[in-house]
Structures are given as C-alpha cells and as structure tokens.
Write a protein that binds this DNA or RNA. Structure first.
Lengths: 334, 334
DNA sequence: CTGAAAGCGCTTACAG
DNA sequence: CTGAAAGCGCTTACAG
C-alpha cells in the first residue's frame, strides 16, 4: 500500500501538503493540487484508517450494539441493521457490529479500545444496563427505543403510545365495542422492552376511554402454540367484532386460521395491526396497520449520534415519531 | 484513556516490558508481571486499536460484505450475519458490516484503508464481481456460496446439488411419480446466485434419473401473486402426489392454501422442502425438509478466513457441506 | 502557499 | 529478565 510519503515524493511536495490537500484544511495552489491528484491516482493511494484514527482520535466508525434477545421476532431486525449501515455510510461512517452476549462488555470493549466514535443501541429496554456502559465510556450514544432513565442519552423511537391509541380509536370510530387484543408473548414483557409496554398500556387505556370492551390475549412464545392460542381467543369471545394485533407471529398465522374457519375480513371480522409495509408485503398481509417506519426512526438515530460526535455539548434530545396508519380496508363499520 | 506509557509509569517499568507482558512474547518476572497487572486494573487500561493496527498491520477486524439483493428473502439473512459476528468474536475478531450498494467499492474501501484483515462474502453469485476486488486487494477472503471461478479464494457452501437429489430421492423412494417442484422466482435465477441454479438443476436431473415426472413452477417474486401461482400449480397438476418446495415464500403460504382447499398433509399431498429448523419453527412449518445449516456453513467460513489471515500460503479450499434431512412426517408412501 | 518536526499509542528489533 | 529507540502512517501546530 502506498503511504502519504509515497504520494508526497511522487508529487514532489511535503507530506503535510498532501495531507492538507486531502483535507482541504488550507489553501493549496492549483498546480500543486493537480500534481497531488495525479500522484494519488497513480499510486492508488488510500489513507490508512488506523494511522488516521491514531492521529485524529476519530475512527469514522459507529458501533451497532445488537442485543441478544432470542424471543423477539428476528426477521425484522435485519431491516434495522441495514438502515443503520446505509445511513452511516451516507454520513461517512463505517459500522462495527457488536453482538456480544453481554452488551455492556461489548460496549466497553469497542469504546475502551477506541474502535468507534459512538454507539447505537438497538432494542433498548426500560432499565437498560447498557446505558451505564455508554455513560462510563463517555462516548456519544443513541438509543433506538425509550428507556426510563434516558435523560443522559439521545433517543428516538416510534410513539408507540400514540400508535396504540390510534388503533383503538380507528376501531371505536367504526362502532366496534368488543375487541380482542392480541398482544405480545409474556416473555417479551419480561424482557422489559419499552415499546412492548407502551403499546400495551396505551391500548388498554384508550379502550377504557373509548368505552371499548377489550379481551387481552398474550400470543404464545412458541410458534407451535400460536395457532391454538389464537383459535382459543376467537372461541372465547365469539361476539368480538374486531381484532387488534400487535404480535407479529399472530399476524402471520391469522390468514391461515381465518381461512380455516371461513372467516372473511372485514365482512365477519375487522382486523387492525402494527407492522411495516415491507413486512406486510412479504407475508401478503391484507390488514390495515400502523406503520412502524423503521427507516425514519433508525436513520434519525444515526444522524443524532453523528451530530453528537460533531458537537458533544448539544443538548440531549428525545424524539418520538408520530405513527402513520395505512388503511388496507380490513376494518368496517358495525 | 490510559496509554501503555501510563501503565509503564504506574508499574515502574518500561513500555516495552508492558507490551511484552500483554502479548506474552517474552518472559517477564513474576513480580514485574504482577505490578503490571495491578497497573492495568488501576488505570483501566485497554490498548488503542488504531495504534495497535498501525504498529502490527493487523486490525483484528473482518469485513462482512453484505450484497444488495432486494429480491431475496431478507429475514434469513440476519441469521447469517449473527453467526458471522458470533464466530468472529470467538476467534478474536470484530466485524465491520459493509452494505455498500456496490460491493466492489465497499471491498476496495475497507481493504485499501486497512480497516480489515480479511473479508467474508455473503450471497456469492456464479460470476461474482466482488471476487476480483478481493484478489486485487490481496487480502484473505472467503466466499459463502460457490462461484464458477473460485479457484483463488476459499469457499464454503451447503452442497445444494446433493440437497436437491436427496429431496427427489426421498419422494421417489416413497413411490411418488408426479411431483410439483416449486422453485424460486425467475428474478432470483437472474441474480445468478449459485445455489439457486445448483439446487434447481440437481432436482430436475435427479427426477429424470428416478423416472419422476416434474412440473416446474417458479414462485412469484411479488408476494401478492404468490398464492395465485401456487393455487394455479395445484390446479394444473391435479394428479401430483407431492410438492417439492424450494421457495421460502411458497412455504409460508402453503399452510394457508392447503387449509383453504382442505388438503391434508401427508394424507392428500406429500410435501418436502428446504428450510432451516429455526425458520421452520418461526412459521410453524410442519414439513420434512433439508436443513441448510447456516451455523455450520457460516462458522466454517469464518474459521477459514481466520486461518488464512494466520497463514496466507495455505492451499485454497472449497468445502461443500453434506445436507441433512429432517423428517417431520409430511411425506407418505403412495 | 509550503515544509520540517513533533506527536498520536502501540510493537519490536537491538542491546545489555 | 529488562529498557531505549526506531518505526508504523497519519495530522497539525509552528515557522517561514
């Protein structure tokens, strides 16, 4: 690999001139600049990242802390990872994936060794131990999700409370009075993920406000049991006119179950859920849904951490994204 | 952050002694070693990764080149990424995710700047342009998948040809003579992914050998059309006694369609497919299937690139993993 | 507008 | 068993 010294020699200038030509941090005569350009092309020069990081204390790398949460629905995760990576690239960063079983250890490792300029925490829980590690590292960090004690770090998330309310109101406005709420498996509540609770509570709360009778059913954690749980819920509440579904597993099974029972949507039953367009397309889900908009949430998070790397003193922000509802005609007036 | 100099001062030794104590590359007296250990703990010392990389020309980082292939079924991808990351960690490497739209540019970027010691190529195609980039970079690289011209790089993959043959034989042995082969969308064939062709061709080939009449149906690329394609295939070949399914989308839709038509498996129809245990569990797929074993394939790939980083002169290997079939009782004798 | 030199934090011959 | 010094490839005051 050619070094900056090789380029300097080839162009007949000093290394500092090459460096400045590259960074644009001081004026370089046109002629010199051209000679340097030629040298760079001729020698195929690319700056050594390690040397640059050593000299500047900047790595141009973001650590993506992916927690180990087997119970969660894995497929959706890839989308988040891809968006982080793509946004990071647009902002000039590379992404180091940190999937350590112990997220705290992972954060400590990549920050202590100065491998990253900042970290992005995926799947934040309400009492997320990783927040302390980010604070201890004294590096910029952003939470994708809301923690109870997140005053110290920037965070972004979908406004799941608003999402829950809008789903309930959507049904209430159409005259539904008895609704089955298929919420997430209890295992996921135990994982303390903020959005799980926020959506759950807002649905229950808004149902009360709207005078809507809610039958709450936790989806099964084990896919084998899912269908039975779902069927049981329908059996137990025959007078329900609508389903409000948060569980992704239930959403996938629903078409099968409804077809088995010859239940037509929305004629016999209205359905509203929470899932992304891309996900819905993949499984051909024909249901009206609140859109979690990962591209917006995640891209915003990456921008926030990049901004904070630029300016560590910027006030902490907490952003909640207003959810959009996509009407696919799976709900009707009753 | 404490530096090696701080540790040396604290322990009352030279920096080189600390460095050697850390690497174990020369004998250090017990007493000195202890003082150094204490200093490291007291100062919370962790070596600066950039400085280390600069001094040793080793980054302890692997580049994971994730291609941009929207047509492919995304959820499965995350599993591969996670296994790469976990295996890399076990071997002492971090993972840099490279998701550039142009994989070649991504490889050039991370290798030219010496950000990685080697690269792992996901979703290799038969004529993969990225191979040239790895060769040009003169860094170790491993292919997950088989390319036509892969004599120069290590590669690992499931033996998809064997997988195809074993599925056909499984049905042939049970007396099936007319089978519908639901293969991948034509879009995926155009993407030139090696495994797509290898499986396809081996199924057709083995069917001929086994005297099995095959109706080949390409699954729809658009999920909206999937169900119709699948239904059309059943209608067009009413005398088929079995389904051989490669398309993941078709696998997901199959339970719905069969339940709609009151077709019972394996009583009315035998089904064999190609999908992983984890994936099958997530969608509660009750079908006998060849197991793609991503954990084995991917972990092997990471080991191979790590070995080659250690010893660049090792002969190139190409490993094909024999597929396992998991019998879930979805096929019967006819 | 340009260059010589110090420094970032490591490792590793070299010398003892 | 240990240390002083050079070097990895950059950037950036400092000086002109």
């Amino acid at each position: 690999m050619a070094t900056i010294g090789d380029v300097a020699k080839y162009a007949g200038v000093s290394r500092s001139t090459v460096s400045h030509a590259l960074s644009g941090k001081r004026p370089i005569s046109l002629e010199t600049r051209q000679r340097i350009s030629e040298a760079i092309v001729a020698l195929q020069y690319t700056a050594n990242a390690g040397a640059k990081a050593l000299a500047t204390s900047k790595t141009s790398t973001l650590g993506l802390i992916v927690p180990y949460t087997p119970a969660e629905f894995a497929p959706a995760r890839m989308q988040y990872v891809m968006i982080v990576s793509e946004t990071a690239r647009e902002l000039g960063f590379d992404v180091l994936m940190v999937t350590d079983f112990d997220g705290r250890a992972g954060i400590k490792r990549v920050t202590d060794s100065s491998r990253v300029d900042g970290v992005i925490l995926l799947n934040v829980t309400r009492h997320d131990e990783r927040i302390g590690s980010v604070l201890a590292a004294a590096k910029p960090g952003v939470l994708i999700g809301l923690a109870d004690d997140n005053a110290a770090l920037d965070s972004v998330d979908l406004d799941f409370a608003a999402a829950g309310r809008s789903m309930v109101r959507h049904l209430a406005e159409r005259g539904h009075r008895r609704v089955i709420f298929v919420t997430l498996p209890t295992e996921m509540f135990l994982q303390d993920l903020g959005y799980v609770w926020r959506l759950h509570e807002s649905v229950i709360d808004e149902a009360q406000t709207a005078g809507l009778a809610l039958t709450v059913v936790h989806d099964a954690a084990d896919p084998k049991d899912r269908m039975r749980v779902l069927a049981g819920a329908l059996d137990a509440t025959p007078d329900a006119t609508a389903l409000l579904v948060h569980s992704v597993g239930a959403l996938i099974d629903l078409p099968v179950l409804l077809s088995q029972r010859r239940i037509s949507v929305p004629r016999d039953l209205s359905v509203v859920g929470l899932f992304g367009d891309e996900f819905g397309a993949m499984f051909a889900l024909p249901y009206t849904a609140v859109e979690p908009s990962p591209e917006v949430v995640v891209s915003r998070a990456v921008h926030l951490v990049a901004e904070r790397i630029e300016d560590p003193s910027r006030p902490v922000v907490q952003e909640l994204l207003a959810p959009l509802m996509v009407d696919r005609g799976s709900t009707r007036e009753v």
